[in-house]
Write a protein that binds this DNA or RNA. Structure first.
Length: 281
DNA sequence: ACTATTTCCTGGATGC
DNA sequence: TGCATCCAGGAAATAG
């Protein structure tokens, strides 16, 4: 389940491999449910465009595109191809004669002959394009704050006064974009805060600690190439290693790494949440 | 304006 | 062994 560190790893890998390439053609599967834009729009924006860079915005992978000037007086078109991997989405860079795996929903053919394939068994992922200058010069951005860029004061403001459990607030992409279930649990453990605590019950000090914990966890995870659980692999097919550093996520019943109390698992907003009843208050 | 709950989707794990 | 059921969870939609 790709969250910020996994998406960052994938985006960096893709950038290294395909930045500068021109898109020749696009194939979309028969039943293109995982599309946020219409097939026509996607083809129109992608075909003939050059991939200037591949980057991450929240949990989205953004391909910044530049179109060739077509006809006199036409301005160079810009656009973005935006991919959300959902739970099980993958972007593969493949050679054209390699086997197309099941659940392949899109194939983007590049001028070099290679292909970028979007594969997603569970179909929670989404593809979209954004056009021209409508988004301004900055291009696509995630709806909430980037956790690695937000400063402490701003972070505190985001959560203060909210009645919802802090875990739910961390998962709310409109507040903070990029934190998912794993890193929410890991961050709360490091900050010593129980996931069910209401955000409004936390002091500024708590929230500052949480802000630091979120940034540390995300940065360490990026450094290790993300967490490989289920079948996550990056753009090169490599696994990440941050799952070895998980202190609470997926460790129900196991001893806490700090105090040896058994880790508890509860359900908040329909998601499993893991914490140490002794270390987290 | 917020918050909580439901829905989508399929592979893998579990249970009888 | 086989079949049914459950579970994972991001984010949009729906309900309160």
């Amino acid at each position: 389940m790709p969250e910020l560190p996994e998406v960052e790893t994938i985006a960096r890998g893709l950038h290294k491999r395909i930045a500068g390439e021109r898109i020749q053609s696009v194939w979309l599967s028969e039943k293109p449910e995982p599309l946020k834009s219409s097939p026509v729009q996607i083809v129109r924006v992608l075909e003939g465009s050059r991939i200037v860079q591949v980057r991450r915005a929240g949990k989205h992978i953004v391909f910044d595109l530049e179109r060739k000037v077509r006809g006199a007086g036409a301005e160079a078109g810009r656009g973005q191809w935006v991919v959300h991997l959902g739970m099980t989405g993958r972007l593969q860079v493949a050679l054209p004669d390699s086997e197309v795996s099941r659940h392949t929903h899109a194939i983007v053919k590049l001028a070099s002959g290679r292909e970028v394939r979007f594969v997603d068994p569970r179909r929670f992922g989404r593809l979209a394009v954004t056009g021209d200058s409508s988004e301004g010069t900055r291009g696509f951005t995630a709806p909430g704050d980037e956790p690695l860029e937000s400063r402490s004061e701003r972070f505190v403001e985001l959560f203060r006064g909210r009645k919802t459990p802090i875990k739910s607030a961390l998962l709310n992409q409109k507040l903070l974009s990029g934190v998912g279930n794993i890193y929410a649990d890991e961050s709360l453990f490091r900050a010593g805060i129980r996931p069910r605590r209401r955000a409004c019950s936390l002091t500024k000090e708590h929230l500052r600690n949480l802000h630091r914990a979120v940034q540390e966890v995300l940065q360490e995870a990026i450094a290790l190439g993300g967490s490989s659980i289920s079948d996550y692999v990056d753009a090169e097919g490599n696994e990440g290693f941050f799952q070895l550093q998980h202190r609470v996520y997926g460790r129900e019943g196991e001893p806490c790494s700090v105090c040896t109390s058994p880790i508890k698992r509860i359900v908040i907003a329909g998601r499993s949440s893991h914490y140490c009843p002794h270390c987290q208050k």
